[in-house]
Computed example of a mutant assay.
Amino acid sequence: MILVTGGTGLVGSHLLYKLVSNNEPVRAIYRRKHKLDTVKKVFSYYSDNAESLYNKIEWMEANLTDITSLEPVFKNVEHVYHCAAFVSFEPDRYHELRKINIIGTANIVNLCIDNAIKKLCYVSSIAAIGHNENPEKLITENTEWNPEDDNSVYAITKYGAEIEVWRGTQEGVNAVIVNPGIILGPGFWKGGGSSSLFKQIYKGFKYYTHGITGYVDVWDVINIMHQLMRSEITNERYILVSENLSFKDFQEKTAKALGVNPAKKEASKLILEIGWRLDWLNHKLFGKRRKLSKQVAQTARHKTVYDNSKIKTDIKFEFNLIETSIQKVSTYFLDDLKNK
């Protein structure tokens, strides 16, 4: 039996589709029942037989932070894909992030140890990898994390979760960690996830920046995870990035695919510095949720270039072109918009 956490998210739902399509026995956990409809929606993108495929999944209600609810979930499980996480860059949500991402992962690891799980795959993030002072130097899996850097609260908790996984490897759990860049995939247009970028660009971005980061297609992430779990590779981490693009280039390519105008103005350092301070003030005075933290403003202008050679070498993997991914996801978005 295979266990998938975070099955109602972007990565988890696509992974579930892959597994049930291969007739592999799957159990998945959920926390909010209404989110199961989104999984069915994702399945419908790829199959006319979505309902019957979905019905192959054994769903169990559980909470990462409630060890009692998790214990029965591990019965007869041999392999675990830990995709569940809380994504937020709002500084005041640090304790919530820590509880779900670090303590929740510690619970999963402990249960993997207790149940002699054969292999664990943890979905981390490039946010949990260190940065180079020289922006032209490629970031690799060996780039050291610096706790003295002004890291985002999300990055701190994803790094902390990785520490829990590495602890598990010292206690007998075979594990692999994947560090995807910004994941491009359909179905999750609302909220603050990567899919919502398409909705935001469609509605219109006013500003662009020249900051650079890594992007990857959701199916590349899924196929790599699946290959790693079926391989002899253990106790390794992998950067999953197809291409490094500037935010300006990504916005322009996506706007073109969506048939809308891209942003015309550059968000200068001054604009971003003023912006995150006003955002902070708006939060303090009126209780509004943070949209632009100091760290996000810095990332928008920072150029981080990631090296994907390790995964390409170890499993002979070739990534999809990001422009192709953008076209596909944009088509799903426009179809959903039309059929709304």
Rank of each mutant, 00 (worst) to 15 (best):
E71I: 15
G160V: 10
A300Q: 12
I224M: 10
A84L: 09
V221T: 14
S195T: 15
G214S: 06
P91C: 07
R31T: 13
N134H: 01
K328R: 14
E171N: 14
L10T: 04
L120E: 09
G181E: 09
K340N: 14
T331K: 14
E141P: 03
N151R: 15
Y207R: 05
V42K: 10
N320H: 14
A255V: 01
W189S: 07
I201T: 11
I117K: 11
S309T: 15
T304A: 13
S124L: 08
L36S: 10
N22F: 00
V176S: 08
Y238H: 09
A106T: 12
S330L: 05
F188W: 09
F333H: 10
E164S: 10
L3I: 08
I113T: 08
N22S: 14
V20E: 10
S13V: 03
I113Y: 04
K119N: 02
V11P: 06
I201S: 05
A50S: 15
D314C: 00
L197Q: 12
G7T: 03
Q327A: 15
P72S: 05
F250L: 11
M229H: 02
T157H: 05
F286T: 01
V218Y: 08
S309I: 05
K119G: 05
K33N: 05
E164N: 04
F319W: 06
I100T: 15
I182G: 01
L10P: 08
T209K: 00
S196A: 14
T105R: 07
I139W: 02
V42E: 09
C121W: 02
E61G: 07
N107G: 09
S69H: 06
P72Q: 04
T213H: 04
K33S: 11
S13T: 06
I100H: 08
S330M: 07
K199P: 05
V305W: 00
F333I: 11
G275S: 03
L3Q: 03
C121T: 14
W219R: 11
E61Q: 15
M60D: 06
W166M: 01
T5K: 00
T169G: 01
E164P: 09
V123D: 01
H34W: 11
A127C: 10
K264L: 13
E162I: 06
W189M: 08
V305G: 00
Y202P: 02
N235K: 11
V11W: 07
H283R: 00
H95R: 13
K118T: 12
G191K: 05
N282A: 05
P135C: 02
G160W: 12
N308P: 14
S196R: 02
Y306G: 02
F43M: 03
E78T: 14
T143G: 06
G192D: 15
Y94D: 07
N244F: 07
T213V: 11
S52N: 13
A255M: 03
N115D: 01
V87K: 07
K256W: 00
S293K: 03
I103N: 11
W166L: 05
E51M: 08
I103H: 11
S231F: 09
Y30K: 08
Q170I: 05
V109I: 14
F43E: 08
V241D: 11
K312L: 01
S231P: 10
E236C: 07
S330E: 04
I163C: 12
R290V: 08
A28N: 02
Y46Q: 03
K338M: 08
P262F: 06
F333M: 11
S152H: 02
D150Y: 03
T65H: 00
F188G: 00
L240T: 12
Y159G: 00
P72H: 00
M60V: 14
N308F: 01
L245M: 13
